[in-house]
Amino acid sequence: MKKHLNILTLLIVVLISAPLNAADGNEILKRIDAKLMPESYETYRKLINIEPDGKKKEFVFFTVKKGKDKMAMLYISPASEKGRSTLRLGDNMWLYIPNVGKPIRITSLQSITGGVFNNSDIMQVEYSVEYDVEKMEEADKSVILNLKAKNKTVAYDKLKMWATKDDILTKIECYSSSGMLIKTLDFKDIIDFGNGLTRPATIETHSPLYKGYLSVMIYSQVKTRQFDDEIFTVNYMSKLESLRKL
């Protein structure tokens, strides 16, 4: 009888603690987001695609972000791409090409730059907007969060995320709904960007689907800056350059 009572007690504890664990995880996820990016900021980023033959293709972007899910990005180089811009508003993404003269919708799984990063990686909004924590594990020096996409418009169905105990992101594995590993993102070179923002300056990604390829994103000058909502509209995409003149 006592044995049955112990099992029952254990079951109750497990059932109660599981949602609490997920709730704690969601709080940690929000703290990870906050440590990764300020609420509203501008930054310059360089994307390097390293091909299997060792050759590199580089892109430089001017990026602005507001709130949890608004991001706009202007191509600074190379010259063949200069003036292009992309916009993300929640699940919506657009690409503006000066020669075409109008924004066209793009999807999150496309890659406008080639390489391992897709549009969703390059214009990643806060993880807590797209994912819920299903399970949290604690190790000696890190926390591991298992995330599940909130809906089917999110690029990856599941993420496995590693962070330090002080909520700095170190690694993400991205999985499809079938459980296949799509890519791994390694967050490296933790740097103090000022104004209390200490975060990884480099994101390196590789994928079993792109054998031999490596893509790297380097952040520079992450500055807190306030923006009006109108900056994050399709009709402002051709005017993003003017933000650099302010």
Binding site: Y44, K46, V60, S77, D189, K245
Partner: peptide, 25 residues
């Protein structure tokens, strides 16, 4: 921290010289 801050434009094994983009403003 100071050493790391100086390295903003040269993070790890990949370089990003911010003066490249500042000139383009």
């Amino acid at each position: 921290t100071l050493i790391m801050s100086v390295g903003i434009s040269f993070a790890g094994e990949y370089s990003f010289d911010i003066s490249e983009v500042e000139n383009s403003v």
